[in-house]
Protein backbone atom coordinates (compact mmCIF):
# COMPACT_ATOMS: atom_id res chain seq x y z
CA UNK A 1 0.00 0.00 0.00
CA UNK A 2 1.25 3.47 -0.81
CA UNK A 3 2.03 5.21 2.51
CA UNK A 4 -0.47 7.92 3.41
CA UNK A 5 -0.99 10.37 6.24
CA UNK A 6 -4.09 10.24 8.38
CA UNK A 7 -6.15 13.24 9.41
CA UNK A 8 -8.83 12.90 12.07
CA UNK A 9 -11.09 15.70 10.87
CA UNK A 10 -12.42 18.17 13.40
CA UNK A 11 -14.19 20.62 11.10
CA UNK A 12 -15.77 20.77 7.68
CA UNK A 13 -13.19 23.35 6.63
CA UNK A 14 -10.35 21.08 7.60
CA UNK A 15 -11.76 18.30 5.41
CA UNK A 16 -12.24 20.47 2.36
CA UNK A 17 -8.80 22.02 2.77
CA UNK A 18 -7.02 18.66 2.91
CA UNK A 19 -9.04 17.36 -0.02
CA UNK A 20 -8.40 20.50 -2.06
CA UNK A 21 -4.69 20.38 -1.32
CA UNK A 22 -4.21 16.75 -2.41
CA UNK A 23 -6.76 16.54 -5.22
CA UNK A 24 -7.28 12.93 -6.27
CA UNK A 25 -4.51 11.83 -3.91
CA UNK A 26 -6.77 12.24 -0.87
CA UNK A 27 -10.06 10.64 0.08
CA UNK A 28 -12.45 10.64 2.98
CA UNK A 29 -12.57 7.66 5.29
CA UNK A 30 -15.97 6.82 6.71
CA UNK A 31 -16.43 3.08 7.38
CA UNK A 32 -13.39 2.22 5.31
CA UNK A 33 -14.81 -1.17 4.38
CA UNK A 34 -14.36 -0.43 0.68
CA UNK A 35 -11.57 2.14 0.84
CA UNK A 36 -9.02 0.01 2.71
CA UNK A 37 -9.62 -2.94 0.39
CA UNK A 38 -9.19 -0.69 -2.65
CA UNK A 39 -6.02 0.89 -1.26
CA UNK A 40 -4.52 -2.58 -0.75
CA UNK A 41 -5.50 -3.56 -4.27
CA UNK A 42 -3.90 -0.40 -5.66
CA UNK A 43 -7.17 1.06 -7.00
CA UNK A 44 -6.21 4.38 -5.42
CA UNK A 45 -2.82 5.75 -4.49
CA UNK A 46 -3.31 8.32 -1.76
CA UNK A 47 -1.14 10.70 0.20
CA UNK A 48 -3.83 11.57 2.74
CA UNK A 49 -6.87 9.93 4.24
CA UNK A 50 -9.34 12.15 6.06
CA UNK A 51 -11.35 10.42 8.74
CA UNK A 52 -14.79 12.00 8.90
CA UNK A 53 -15.98 9.74 11.72
CA UNK A 54 -14.36 12.27 14.04
CA UNK A 55 -16.36 15.07 12.45
CA UNK A 56 -19.51 15.77 14.49
CA UNK A 57 -21.40 17.15 11.47
CA UNK A 58 -20.92 13.86 9.64
CA UNK A 59 -22.38 11.89 12.54
CA UNK A 60 -25.78 13.51 12.95
CA UNK A 61 -28.77 11.20 12.86
CA UNK A 62 -31.95 13.08 13.61
CA UNK A 63 -35.49 12.10 12.85
CA UNK A 64 -37.92 14.93 12.93
CA UNK A 65 -40.45 13.92 10.34
CA UNK A 66 -37.64 14.22 7.84
CA UNK A 67 -34.36 12.43 8.41
CA UNK A 68 -30.88 13.93 8.55
CA UNK A 69 -28.17 11.35 8.27
CA UNK A 70 -24.49 12.30 8.49
CA UNK A 71 -22.30 10.69 5.89
CA UNK A 72 -20.25 8.80 8.51
CA UNK A 73 -23.26 7.21 10.21
CA UNK A 74 -22.83 3.44 10.08
CA UNK A 75 -25.61 1.09 9.01
CA UNK A 76 -26.25 -0.32 12.46
CA UNK A 77 -27.21 3.08 13.86
CA UNK A 78 -29.86 3.36 11.17
CA UNK A 79 -31.49 -0.03 11.45
CA UNK A 80 -31.27 -0.20 15.24
CA UNK A 81 -33.38 2.93 15.52
CA UNK A 82 -36.94 1.63 15.55
CA UNK A 83 -38.50 4.99 14.66
CA UNK A 84 -36.28 5.33 11.60
CA UNK A 85 -36.95 1.76 10.61
CA UNK A 86 -40.67 2.45 10.68
CA UNK A 87 -40.57 5.77 8.84
CA UNK A 88 -37.92 4.87 6.24
CA UNK A 89 -38.28 1.17 5.50
CA UNK A 90 -36.73 1.44 2.06
CA UNK A 91 -33.34 2.51 3.40
CA UNK A 92 -33.46 0.21 6.40
CA UNK A 93 -33.91 -2.84 4.15
CA UNK A 94 -30.64 -1.93 2.44
CA UNK A 95 -28.73 -0.92 5.57
CA UNK A 96 -29.51 -4.30 7.13
CA UNK A 97 -27.88 -6.36 4.42
CA UNK A 98 -24.63 -4.55 3.69
CA UNK A 99 -21.93 -7.12 4.53
CA UNK A 100 -22.26 -8.79 7.92
CA UNK A 101 -22.55 -7.40 11.43
CA UNK A 102 -18.87 -6.42 11.49
CA UNK A 103 -19.21 -4.43 8.27
CA UNK A 104 -22.44 -2.81 9.46
CA UNK A 105 -20.54 -1.49 12.49
CA UNK A 106 -18.53 0.69 10.12
CA UNK A 107 -20.07 0.96 6.68
CA UNK A 108 -22.82 3.49 6.06
CA UNK A 109 -24.84 5.05 3.31
CA UNK A 110 -22.48 7.98 2.85
CA UNK A 111 -19.66 5.65 2.00
CA UNK A 112 -21.93 3.50 -0.10
CA UNK A 113 -22.85 6.56 -2.19
CA UNK A 114 -19.30 7.86 -2.50
CA UNK A 115 -17.86 4.44 -3.35
CA UNK A 116 -20.26 4.65 -6.29
CA UNK A 117 -20.45 0.97 -7.08
CA UNK A 118 -23.31 -0.17 -9.34
CA UNK A 119 -24.21 -2.86 -6.82
CA UNK A 120 -24.47 -0.55 -3.80
CA UNK A 121 -27.33 -1.88 -1.70
CA UNK A 122 -28.36 1.35 0.00
CA UNK A 123 -28.44 3.75 -2.95
CA UNK A 124 -31.69 2.53 -4.62
CA UNK A 125 -33.48 2.95 -1.28
CA UNK A 126 -32.22 6.52 -1.00
CA UNK A 127 -33.46 7.22 -4.51
CA UNK A 128 -36.99 5.95 -3.90
CA UNK A 129 -37.10 7.97 -0.67
CA UNK A 130 -36.22 11.12 -2.70
CA UNK A 131 -33.04 11.67 -0.70
CA UNK A 132 -30.92 14.80 -1.19
CA UNK A 133 -27.16 14.71 -0.79
CA UNK A 134 -25.61 17.70 0.98
CA UNK A 135 -22.13 18.28 -0.37
CA UNK A 136 -19.60 20.49 1.40
CA UNK A 137 -16.79 22.11 -0.53
CA UNK A 138 -14.39 25.03 -0.59
CA UNK A 139 -17.19 27.25 -1.88
CA UNK A 140 -19.74 26.17 0.68
CA UNK A 141 -22.56 23.66 0.50
CA UNK A 142 -24.66 22.42 -2.38
CA UNK A 143 -27.35 19.81 -2.77
CA UNK A 144 -27.74 17.00 -5.31
CA UNK A 145 -30.52 14.43 -5.55
CA UNK A 146 -29.38 10.94 -4.55
CA UNK A 147 -30.66 9.80 -7.94
CA UNK A 148 -28.08 12.05 -9.63
CA UNK A 149 -25.14 11.52 -7.27
CA UNK A 150 -23.51 8.53 -8.94
CA UNK A 151 -22.35 9.21 -12.49
CA UNK A 152 -20.46 6.01 -13.35
CA UNK A 153 -18.56 3.08 -11.92
CA UNK A 154 -16.57 4.63 -9.04
CA UNK A 155 -17.52 8.09 -10.35
CA UNK A 156 -19.81 10.70 -8.81
CA UNK A 157 -20.60 14.41 -8.77
CA UNK A 158 -18.02 15.30 -6.10
CA UNK A 159 -15.55 17.88 -7.36
CA UNK A 160 -12.08 18.67 -6.11
CA UNK A 161 -12.22 19.64 -2.44
CA UNK A 162 -15.78 18.47 -2.00
CA UNK A 163 -17.14 15.71 0.20
CA UNK A 164 -20.52 14.31 1.10
CA UNK A 165 -21.54 15.77 4.45
CA UNK A 166 -25.02 14.40 4.99
CA UNK A 167 -28.05 12.88 3.34
CA UNK A 168 -31.50 14.35 3.90
CA UNK A 169 -34.67 12.35 3.44
CA UNK A 170 -37.96 14.26 3.28
CA UNK A 171 -40.79 13.22 5.53
CA UNK A 172 -42.71 10.48 3.67
CA UNK A 173 -46.24 11.36 2.65
CA UNK A 174 -49.18 9.67 4.23
CA UNK A 175 -49.72 6.39 2.44
CA UNK A 176 -46.05 5.97 1.55
CA UNK A 177 -44.37 2.59 1.58
CA UNK A 178 -41.00 1.42 0.30
CA UNK A 179 -38.90 -1.71 0.17
CA UNK A 180 -35.53 -2.92 -1.09
CA UNK A 181 -34.62 -6.46 -2.04
CA UNK A 182 -31.61 -7.88 -3.75
CA UNK A 183 -30.81 -11.28 -5.06
CA UNK A 184 -27.65 -12.99 -3.87
CA UNK A 185 -26.71 -16.68 -4.01
CA UNK A 186 -25.74 -16.62 -0.35
CA UNK A 187 -28.11 -15.32 2.30
CA UNK A 188 -25.57 -12.79 3.64
CA UNK A 189 -22.07 -11.57 2.90
CA UNK A 190 -22.71 -11.31 -0.79
CA UNK A 191 -22.95 -8.79 -3.60
CA UNK A 192 -26.23 -8.20 -5.37
CA UNK A 193 -26.62 -9.88 -8.74
CA UNK A 194 -29.52 -7.48 -9.02
CA UNK A 195 -31.30 -5.25 -6.52
CA UNK A 196 -34.51 -3.24 -6.65
CA UNK A 197 -35.96 -0.57 -4.39
CA UNK A 198 -39.56 0.45 -4.91
CA UNK A 199 -41.81 2.96 -3.28
CA UNK A 200 -45.51 3.56 -3.60
CA UNK A 201 -47.56 6.45 -2.30
CA UNK A 202 -51.26 5.71 -2.15
CA UNK A 203 -53.70 8.52 -2.69
CA UNK A 204 -56.89 9.01 -0.71
CA UNK A 205 -58.73 7.24 -3.53
CA UNK A 206 -56.60 4.12 -3.07
CA UNK A 207 -54.83 4.65 -6.38
CA UNK A 208 -51.11 5.08 -6.83
CA UNK A 209 -50.30 8.73 -6.35
CA UNK A 210 -46.58 8.30 -6.78
CA UNK A 211 -44.20 5.45 -7.45
CA UNK A 212 -40.46 5.11 -7.66
CA UNK A 213 -38.40 2.15 -8.78
CA UNK A 214 -34.59 2.13 -8.62
CA UNK A 215 -32.37 -0.71 -9.79
CA UNK A 216 -28.95 -1.85 -8.59
CA UNK A 217 -26.23 -3.89 -10.31
CA UNK A 218 -27.82 -3.72 -13.76
CA UNK A 219 -26.07 -0.65 -15.19
CA UNK A 220 -22.92 1.40 -14.49
CA UNK A 221 -24.98 3.48 -12.05
CA UNK A 222 -28.16 2.89 -10.08
CA UNK A 223 -30.99 3.51 -12.56
CA UNK A 224 -34.60 4.50 -12.21
CA UNK A 225 -37.21 2.53 -14.12
CA UNK A 226 -39.08 5.65 -15.17
CA UNK A 227 -41.48 4.00 -17.63
CA UNK A 228 -42.54 1.55 -14.94
CA UNK A 229 -43.03 4.40 -12.47
CA UNK A 230 -45.09 6.40 -14.95
CA UNK A 231 -47.18 3.37 -15.79
CA UNK A 232 -48.17 2.86 -12.15
CA UNK A 233 -49.04 6.44 -11.29
CA UNK A 234 -52.77 6.98 -11.28
CA UNK A 235 -53.53 3.26 -11.49
CA UNK A 236 -55.06 0.84 -9.01
CA UNK A 237 -52.23 -1.06 -7.27
CA UNK A 238 -53.43 -4.42 -8.53
CA UNK A 239 -51.31 -7.51 -8.99
CA UNK A 240 -51.75 -7.19 -12.74
CA UNK A 241 -50.52 -3.60 -12.76
CA UNK A 242 -47.59 -4.50 -10.55
CA UNK A 243 -46.76 -7.34 -12.94
CA UNK A 244 -46.88 -4.96 -15.89
CA UNK A 245 -44.67 -2.45 -14.08
CA UNK A 246 -42.22 -5.24 -13.32
CA UNK A 247 -42.01 -6.06 -17.03
CA UNK A 248 -41.31 -2.40 -17.78
CA UNK A 249 -38.64 -2.25 -15.06
CA UNK A 250 -36.97 -5.25 -16.62
CA UNK A 251 -36.57 -3.30 -19.81
CA UNK A 252 -34.86 -0.46 -17.96
CA UNK A 253 -32.09 -2.81 -16.86
CA UNK A 254 -28.96 -2.66 -19.03
CA UNK A 255 -26.76 -5.22 -17.31
CA UNK A 256 -23.58 -6.99 -18.30
CA UNK A 257 -22.60 -10.65 -17.92
CA UNK A 258 -19.87 -11.32 -15.42
CA UNK A 259 -18.86 -13.82 -12.77
CA UNK A 260 -21.83 -12.83 -10.65
CA UNK A 261 -24.54 -13.25 -13.23
CA UNK A 262 -25.57 -13.08 -16.86
CA UNK A 263 -27.51 -10.40 -18.72
CA UNK A 264 -30.57 -12.63 -18.97
CA UNK A 265 -30.42 -13.64 -15.31
CA UNK A 266 -30.12 -10.05 -14.17
CA UNK A 267 -32.98 -8.80 -16.32
CA UNK A 268 -35.15 -11.66 -15.15
CA UNK A 269 -34.27 -10.91 -11.52
CA UNK A 270 -35.16 -7.24 -11.97
CA UNK A 271 -38.63 -8.34 -13.02
CA UNK A 272 -39.00 -10.66 -10.04
CA UNK A 273 -37.57 -8.21 -7.51
CA UNK A 274 -39.62 -5.27 -8.82
CA UNK A 275 -42.78 -7.27 -8.34
CA UNK A 276 -41.72 -8.36 -4.88
CA UNK A 277 -40.63 -4.92 -3.70
CA UNK A 278 -43.68 -3.18 -5.16
CA UNK A 279 -45.86 -5.70 -3.38
CA UNK A 280 -44.03 -5.16 -0.11
CA UNK A 281 -44.04 -1.38 -0.57
CA UNK A 282 -47.78 -1.53 -1.15
CA UNK A 283 -48.32 -3.46 2.07
CA UNK A 284 -46.25 -0.91 3.95
CA UNK A 285 -48.10 1.93 2.24
CA UNK A 286 -51.40 0.50 3.39
CA UNK A 287 -50.05 0.26 6.94
CA UNK A 288 -48.96 3.89 6.73
CA UNK A 289 -52.35 5.19 5.61
Amino acid sequence: MHPFNYVAAKSVDEVTKVLAKHGDRARCLAGGTDLLVQLRAGVYELDAVVDIKTLPAANVLTLNGSLRMGSAVPCHRIYEDKAIAKAFPGIVDGASIVGGIQIQSRAGMGGNLCNSSPSADTVPGLIVHNAECVIAGPKGKRSVAAADFVTGVRRNVLKNGEFLLEVKLPKPDKGFGAAYERFTPRNEMDIAIAGVASSITLGANGKVKDAKIALAAVAPTPVQAKKAEEFLIGKEPTAANIAKASELAREAAKPISDMRGTVEQRKHLVGVLTRRTLTKALERAKEAK
Binding site: P185, N187, E188
Partner: peptide, 8 residues
Protein backbone atom coordinates in the same frame (compact mmCIF):
# COMPACT_ATOMS: atom_id res chain seq x y z
CA UNK B 1 -14.09 -15.02 -0.17
CA UNK B 2 -16.73 -12.50 -1.28
CA UNK B 3 -17.19 -13.95 -4.74
CA UNK B 4 -16.07 -17.54 -4.20
CA UNK B 5 -19.12 -17.94 -1.98
CA UNK B 6 -18.43 -20.61 0.60
CA UNK B 7 -21.47 -21.31 2.78
CA UNK B 8 -21.97 -19.02 5.78
Amino acid sequence: FLDYRMPT
